[in-house]
Every structure is written in C-alpha cells, then in structure tokens.
Amino acid sequence: MSNVMIVGVGGQGTLLASRIIGKVAIKAGYDVKVSEVHGMSQRGGSVVTYVKYADKVHSPLVFEGEADFLLAFEELEAYRWLPYLKKDGKLIVNTQQMDPMPVITGAMKYPENIARKIRDKVNDVTTVDALSAAMEAGTVKAVNIVLIGCFAKNSDVDKQIWIDVIKETVPQKFLDINLKAFEMGYNS
C-alpha cells in the first residue's frame, strides 16, 4: 500500500502530478483514489492532493503520520506538511522557495534553513532543484514533471509505465520537453 501526499502552491501543477501518479498506479494493477483541490485555494494558496493505491482503498485522503511519500513542490510547504509523513517515510522536496503573503507583507519571516531542519527530522530526503531543471528542459511549467521523474525513481513501479502515462497525459506539442524534464528528475 502507498499513501502519497503532494503539496505545493496553487498554480504549480500539483494536480497534474497527482493525476499522473494515479494513472500509473492503475496501470500497475492497484485500486486507486486521487483527491484533488479545486476552487479558492488554487489561487496561490497552500494546496494538498493525495494519491492512495493498494488492493482496496477506502478513504481518498491521507492523514497525519500516514504518508509513505511526501512530494513537496516548495520548501515551506514541505516543512508545513511534515507531520503528515510517517516517521520512516520518504520526502522529496523541490528547493524552490515562494513567499506566502504574511511574509510579503512583512508580518512574518520565511523560516530559515528549512532544508537542514528537515534533514534533522527525516532520514530519507531527496532534494531537487526542479525549477532549474525545468528551465533547462525548456519551460518553467515542467517543474511538476521533473518532480514526477524524481518520484518515479523512488517508486516501485517500472519506469516505462511512467513514460507511457506521461505520453498519454501531456499535449503532443509539449511531449519532448516533458520527457526531457522527466529524465532530468529521474536521474537527479
């Protein structure tokens, strides 16, 4: 059984990432539930989606202390949602930092040294500079696919299934960029 939690900032493409993981899990023969976020919080808020796969899945949500994987699109969001990760869970975190409004208005500070603090708390951490990788692949929009690549590497599902699903999911004209982004994440 796997409980995957994907966190980020509205607009970063977490939804597509969770859909891809969901489709992959189906191809791998599991029962799957994917829980998405639509509406208000998509407007630059903190967003959380879940993918659960197992022989039989009931709740579509993952709760505190239950995630096998936490895939974080932004550092502060990784830090915020850490309590959802199992004590021996895996964390993949994009090193990108985006200021939330209380930081922009000066009411609060963006916490310092998040990467170090996270490592103190979690054994299995992979950090990726997905923004740079995405830009190298051809577009900042491919941040999510870079992270999917990184997640794929850590999953127990065959690489070819991931590639097949990406081919089915992203529009033809962006396929090459996305496959490149996937490889960059996979090999990072």
Partner: peptide
C-alpha cells in the same frame, strides 16, 4: 491514539489564497 508524528515546533507562516 493517532500515530506519533514528526514534530515541527516552529511557527510556520500560513499561505492563504491570493489574487494572482
């Protein structure tokens, strides 16, 4: 009881939705 959690003791700034 719920499982034991990884604790974050620092106050983390909220990230409410914003105008784009």
């Amino acid at each position: 009881d719920a499982p034991e959690l990884i604790e974050v003791d620092e106050q983390i700034p909220v990230r409410p939705p914003v105008m784009c």
